[in-house]
């Protein structure tokens, strides 16, 4: 595999977000577009992930969390977020990103206070998990861009998508 400068990646993402900000009136619409793009990436990326990582089916959401943090994030972003704040029912957890490569040079201007700059990531996670028959809610609850100490992505398991289960796994 050939390597690309991670700065070029960060800059490309920045160009994408700023173009969206020009194209759409308000931040909510930009957030929605970023999520949609991420979703479209996720539904494709999952196959690459499965083909290359040799990860088997997860038996519970905790295993899923581990695979996302330790294998997927490592593979595609080169970081390993920590997993914390499990809900008592075990259906919700947080990924804490110490350093988010997407925001390396970013300062959020005052007039974009509700922009969720890295919202693409939420879409990617949602799309990828949907293809392995898991409906999840993904959102940013803390962001260093907004002055928080860390970046925190909250993931909530919604349901298993029974309709799309491959034969033999009902």
């Amino acid at each position: 595999m050939h390597l690309m400068s991670s700065e070029l990646f960060t800059l490309t993402y920045g160009a994408l977000v700023t173009q969206l900000c020009k194209d759409y009136e308000n931040d909510e619409d930009v957030n929605k577009q970023l999520d949609k793009m991420g979703y479209n990436i996720g539904v494709r990326l999952i196959e690459d992930f499965l083909a290359r990582s040799n990860v088997g089916r997860c038996h519970d959401f905790r295993e899923t969390a581990d695979v996302i943090a330790k294998v997927a994030f490592k593979m595609y972003l080169g970081i390993t977020p920590s997993i914390t704040n499990w809900s008592p029912a075990g259906d919700e957890f947080s990924l804490i990103l110490e350093n988010n490569p997407l925001v390396d040079f970013v300062e959020l201007p005052d007039n974009h206070s509700s922009l969720i700059y890295s919202n693409l990531l939420c879409g990617v996670l949602r799309g990828a998990l949907e293809m392995v028959q898991m409906a999840v809610d993904v959102k940013f609850v803390q962001d260093t861009l907004k002055g928080d100490g860390v970046t925190e992505i909250r993931m909530k398991f919604v349901k298993r998508i029974e309709d799309n289960l491959p034969a033999g796994e009902e």
Binding site: E47, L50, R57, N164, P166, A167, G168
Partner: peptide
Amino acid sequence: FKLHCFQTLTGI
């Protein structure tokens, strides 16, 4: 002949 099948976790 033999027909071999591989089903992925996504159902392909």
